[in-house]
């Protein structure tokens, strides 16, 4: 028994396994590509312009902040590019250029750098930027209005707004298959359910995000939406609809799993994700916003330090 080896630590010098923050960033961007590519295919060059400008302006804001704050240049870690990419995914294809530039400034400077940069942000930088933009220019997130010049081969109504205003009858023409295959109105990279799930699974399998957060987030959405649907099926949509519409999948796989604003232990992760899912549906069904994912994520980011108090018992105590 005494000879059993449990944990071996060799003495210095240690060798580096070669992994870097940039590796995680580029894999995250790779995982988001299927959803973004479909968005660009649907909405064309304007969508490409929004995504490209979001990534480049986020990197330039980071570079500018590095210069002003006399910090080492940090755009090499790819985190700014990821923030820009995720921000671009949530935008409508017709977002004006100045809206994108202001949004990425909010994400990089207000959401991340003023808290000390990568690893120091208590909220998801993208969620912070989108929330501020939603409250400042709500017209930008009225997808029905922003995309009213597009005529694609599916129902051109934003499913969540239609549901919120007109009940489940208004979304009867939208099938789950349509939602899964991105045949719905929404953000450039937030409509392709299957692509987002594949991207999320890729990140989970490669170990870049924790499955506990994503799965519990989706379980929270499913259970809460199911209870509402059982209570009044004419007014509240079913759980599958809520999972595949709006920002749910982007939130579950890309926003809620942000490193520094999510818990580190197993039980807190489950609680964190579950609360996010529950809050999403509560805001959608009872609040004044058609989509509650962004505000739900900010709420769980806010309570994250409390969840982190739930820790494993220290050995020997």
């Amino acid at each position: 028994m005494l000879n059993q080896k449990k944990f071996i630590v060799s003495h210095a010098p240690f060798c580096h396994d070669g992994s870097r923050i940039s590796e995680r960033s580029y894999h995250t961007m790779f995982a988001a590509l299927p959803a973004i590519i479909l968005g660009i295919c649907q909405y064309g060059a304007p969508a490409m312009g929004v995504v490209a400008l979001a990534i480049s302006s986020a990197m330039l804001w980071e570079l500018a902040f590095n210069r002003v704050a006399k910090q080492p240049v940090s755009i090499g870690d790819g985190n700014a590019a990821v923030i820009g990419l995720l921000f671009g995914m949530l935008m409508p294809a017709t977002m004006p250029w100045w809206g994108v530039v202001i949004g990425t400034m909010l994400a990089i400077v207000v959401g991340k750098q003023i808290f000390g940069g990568i690893g120091g942000n208590p909220f998801s930088p993208v969620a912070v930027a989108i929330a501020i933009m939603m409250l400042s220019w709500k017209g930008f997130f009225d997808f029905d209005e922003m995309l009213c010049s597009y005529e694609l081969d599916f129902a051109m109504i934003y499913p969540l707004t239609a549901l919120k205003n007109f009940g489940t009858d208004a979304i009867s023409a939208i099938s789950t298959g349509d939602l899964l295959m991105g045949r719905q109105v929404g953000g450039i990279g937030s409509t392709f359910g299957l692509g987002l799930i594949i991207g999320g699974l890729y990140l989970i399998i490669r170990g870049f995000i924790r499955w506990e957060i994503s799965v519990s987030f989706l379980v929270g959405v499913f259970v809460t939406a199911l209870l509402f649907n059982i209570s009044d099926s004419a007014k509240y949509a079913g759980p599958v609809f809520h999972i595949f519409t709006g920002y749910t999948l982007v939130g579950a796989f890309f926003l809620a799993t942000d490193d520094s604003s999510s818990p580190v232990n197993c039980i807190p992760m489950f609680l964190y994700g579950l609360l996010g899912g529950v809050m999403t549906v509560l805001i959608r069904n009872l609040g004044v916003y058609a989509d509650g994912v962004i505000f739900a994520i900010l709420v769980i980011n806010l309570v994250n330090p409390i969840f982190d108090k739930i820790r494993p018992k220290a050995l020997g105590k």
């Binding site: 060059a45 304007p46 490409m48 312009g49 929004v50 490209a52 400008l53 990534i55 480049s56 302006s57 990197m59 330039l60 570079l63 240049v73 755009i75 090499g76 790819g78 590019a81 250029w97």
Partner: peptide
């Protein structure tokens, strides 16, 4: 050398976005 790729990426995407807009 490490910063060359991000600089190029930012520059190229900026040009692409200007052209698209």
């Amino acid at each position: 050398k490490d910063l060359l790729l991000p600089y190029c990426l930012a520059g190229i995407l900026l040009v692409v976005s200007v052209l698209c807009y």
